[in-house]
Design a protein around this nucleic acid. Structure first.
Lengths: 234, 234, 234, 234
DNA sequence: GATGAATGAGCGTTCATTCAT
DNA sequence: CATGAATGAACGCTCATTCAT
């Protein structure tokens, strides 16, 4: 992704009603297909699933990557909402538990979320903003947990992301085998963050933003993102 | 993969010296490229990296999938060795810690291990045997941990696999950013398995073999494996 | 060929003007190249000869086999027309002669017709229907010939196909050497079917449909059809 | 085939005993595989079938084409023998009949004979010599037939070749379906050559040698011979 | 603006032929 | 001399993206 995101849709000129509707349909269709099959499905499939021609998809999203980012924005918006709802709960422990479960459920429902989370956590200013918002909310939950003594002092919000992202693959792959199995691993994630007075302190973490950006950079460097149509062979 | 693995290399006829060397070179080259770029690199790149023509790769491994399986066999062999070494340690807690760290290190060194682990845990009888051996060794480590009171009673060997596989992505992506950061997450994995007398018991698990096979099936169903080569026509 | 031919082009939705033109161009190009070089030419050559990109060919004909079948359909349509014209002639002997000559001319013009005839006489319901139509018309010609005493009583329509197909190779290969030489062999085919009151009756034939299908099956079994594209792996 | 056949094996230096044996085995193996599957089988298959390494085949036959020619030489030798045997029969009609049947039987037994006959009737001086010998014998048979009044005056030996080669495909493809069906078409070939006092004379023929050479040239021009490994794309 | 069609670089795999043991 | 292994130019087919109606 070597475009500058700066000039994207300068003032977001209002877009004709049908165009807006189509854009919506595309994102919905992509969400569904990505959730089922991962981001590797054909763009033409997304178009067909949206009941539109493929060129229409490319009018709205010049690149497959742009489409992925749009879907990711939507997912991240949901995530922020879930996190806010969890924050609103009275009991800190229950809130944390609720959040972890909500995130796991999202992963279970969307097989591509993990893919997107590790590769497309940035990609647009909106995405970055959403990400930062999410981190702030998480931070609050963790802090509350520490204050309530259910989270170890050296835990960080980023740890939650890493751990949940980690079990996401298993969680989603196994859903058909044993629905709800993900709950076991959600429990283990919460357990991992329990205080551990006797144990050694954790190695120092990396600030969340830095870490997320580094993950993305690593993937990008490896050319691990979207098949990038005309692939460079060198 | 519709081949019969049954008769594979009956008595392993000795193979000419140079051929053995090249086979080795190919696996090494594939290991390296897979580790850096994931299994999605070109077979031709593997060949080039091994200093050989591409057809040579196909002589040794009739399909790309066979090559991946061969690399996975090697990795899994290493893994079993690591697990055995950890089992040999006196202190159960230290052994467990050592194992988790060893596995994390492997993931850090090989970006494709996660991919292979989730998609190619079977694929050949050797691979399945290695997998089962690994599970037995892990079982021993967990049991020792339980006896020593450092592992919760309801933990299972498969949980280790899920948790470590989970943090693998983050662990490996971040290595260049902050070498050794993976240690933090290795610690959290161990922490997740600590006894939790007060907490609720974990949801019941799925037997390891069943789970691993289901994960593979899930991936295979999604056509998520190897780019799948040209479709057959006739 | 494991596709279901059942639902092919339900109502033949009209296809955009340029697409129809290109489809036509592709079939024409393929006809020409097949005629000159046999069906073994590259699909990319067909595309180039049509002035199109290779992917365009695959959009219209998902596999090379489909393209061959399309060309064969066209040829067989011509053949039916020729046979009908021959049937319309007054004189039975002249009609038969005309048909044999027409078929030879087709072979002379198209080196691949023999190949296609022996391997692709089925392949689509349309092709089978055309084939059956052709057989009916031939049947009429033969019957008229028998009634007029210019064809032996134990002759069958399929014999015409076998004999003409037989001399086709020679007929077409020799056209450049001695244009019109094929006429000699057309004459011999007609001569072969003359009544032979003194001679022994022919061995019993095989019903035409059965024979044609068996020929196709024989070729298919030998993998003698289309170069068969890369084998599927998984 | 752009080699000069002139210098091939100058005085045929005696060749070590085992080498001669291997050469024999290769030709036999190739005969068998070609007969079953046509000349399109892999050279490596021939080698395997002969119980030898593939390089050994290439030592004896620098090119796949050379191997085909060698097999063709053997077939043509058999053919000459059959033709001589037919010539030795007392009754001219029976002799002709016997020859036609013998040739058909050869085609039935060897699916590749047609392929070879149309493409490789020359290719080595030996092959050409054999071919010319065969033509002389055929000439005798036809002449005897004319004298006896069972063959039309304007028939030529080459016509026999064209007609029999023509029905060969059907004859061999159908053998499994209805063994012996080829006899029907052998009868028709003989019938085609009956005198036809009332009918018009045949168009003038092309001299046999000229025709056979032209057929070969036609195939060669179309690149219709052996897949010619490094295929020219232009 | 929306669309169906066109595009071309790419990929896994094959096989006649050459190399090196 | 015999051989197993190596080679590279092809080939059928895919899919993100662009073009033209």
């Amino acid at each position: 992704m070597n475009v500058d995101w700066v000039a994207e849709m300068p003032v977001t000129e209002p877009l004709r009603a049908d165009a807006r509707r189509n854009r919506e349909r595309i994102i919905t269709a992509a969400s569904e297909l990505f959730a089922e099959n991962g981001v590797d499905c054909l763009v033409a499939d997304v178009a067909r699933h949206a009941g539109l021609g493929n060129a229409t998809v490319f009018r709205h999203f010049p690149t497959k990557l742009d489409l992925i980012v749009a879907v990711m924005e939507r997912r991240l918006t949901d995530l922020v909402a879930e996190a806010r709802a969890a924050s609103a709960m009275q009991d800190p422990a229950a809130g944390l538990q609720a959040l972890v479960e909500a995130l796991c459920r999202m992963h279970v429902r969307d097989h591509a979320l993990k893919q997107m989370a590790s590769q497309y956590f940035q990609g647009s200013p909106q995405l970055i903003e959403l990400r930062d918002t999410a981190m702030v909310v998480l931070e609050g939950l963790i802090a509350r947990g520490k204050a309530a003594g259910v989270v170890r002092e050296d835990a960080e919000p980023i740890d939650l992301i890493v751990l949940i992202g980690g079990i996401a693959d298993a969680a989603s792959d196994l859903e058909t085998l044993r629905p709800g199995l993900w709950r076991r691993y959600a429990q283990l994630v919460v357990a991992a963050l329990r205080p551990d007075p006797a144990g050694p302190p954790l190695d120092p973490p990396v600030p969340a933003r830095e870490l997320l950006e580094a993950m993305w950079a690593a993937k990008a460097a490896a050319g691990d993102c979207v098949p990038a149509s005309p692939q460079i062979t060198e």
